[in-house]
């Protein structure tokens, strides 16, 4: 009788813990979806950017092609690790393009370009914030499934750690610096 009661209590506890973990895992998935939305936004912006810049940057074809190449790569990446490297590549390509733009005063003063630059900076910030939110959620999730009594339940249902969305180095935390 007492044994049965004990088993029942343990069972209830396991269920509640499992539910907590599932809720947190969904939070993480939601946060990841946020990042994907923002990455998509960036991919959609690039054709516009190239279109505006093409007229002015006749001698910078290489930089432009780099950006386009990086975009295609980033769009093809599927898992988190691939995405990380591809997006980092795209970020650096974009940054070099914006750096080149600085040398062309007429392009810099162009209204469309100014708007696009603002959009790009905004998107970079959005990605950074979405990543921050995602990483916070992942950290909370990982802490939960590694803590002492919870880790048994996690192991029972084969729930593993989630990966953080990292960036190459600390200097890249800053969005590309563009003087407006």
């Amino acid at each position: 009788m007492w044994l049965l009661l004990l088993i029942l209590i343990i069972l209830l506890w396991v269920i509640s813990v499992y539910n907590v973990i599932v809720a947190k895992r969904n939070n993480v998935d939601n946060a990841w979806a946020q990042i994907e939305v923002q990455l998509k936004r960036r991919h959609d912006l690039i054709p516009n950017l190239v279109k505006v810049a093409k007229g002015y940057l006749a001698y910078e074809r290489e930089t432009l092609e780099n950006v386009i190449k990086a975009r295609t790569q980033a769009m093809q990446a599927i898992n988190i690790k691939d995405k990380e490297t591809a997006e980092n590549f795209l970020t650096s390509a974009l940054r070099s393009l914006l750096f080149v733009v600085e040398n062309y005063p007429d392009l810099k003063a162009n209204q469309n370009m100014l708007k696009l630059q603002e959009e790009i900076i905004s998107t970079e910030n959005r990605i950074a914030f979405a990543r921050q939110y995602y990483n916070d959620e992942v950290m909370r999730f990982n802490i939960t499934i590694q803590q002492f009594p919870f880790c048994f339940v996690a192991r029972m249902f084969c729930i593993s750690k989630k990966e953080l969305f990292k960036i190459e180095d600390s200097s890249q935390k800053e969005p590309p610096k563009v003087k407006l």
Binding site: N30, A31, Q34, Q38, L114, K115, E118, E119, S122, N125, R126, F129, A130, Q132, Y133, L180
Partner: peptide, 19 residues
């Protein structure tokens, strides 16, 4: 106006951080 667009963008960005 670019500055107003910027303000709107910033509000949206910060909202992402809060979800």
């Amino acid at each position: 106006y670019l500055k107003h667009q910027q303000l709107k963008n910033i509000i949206d960005e910060v909202l992402i951080a809060t979800g």
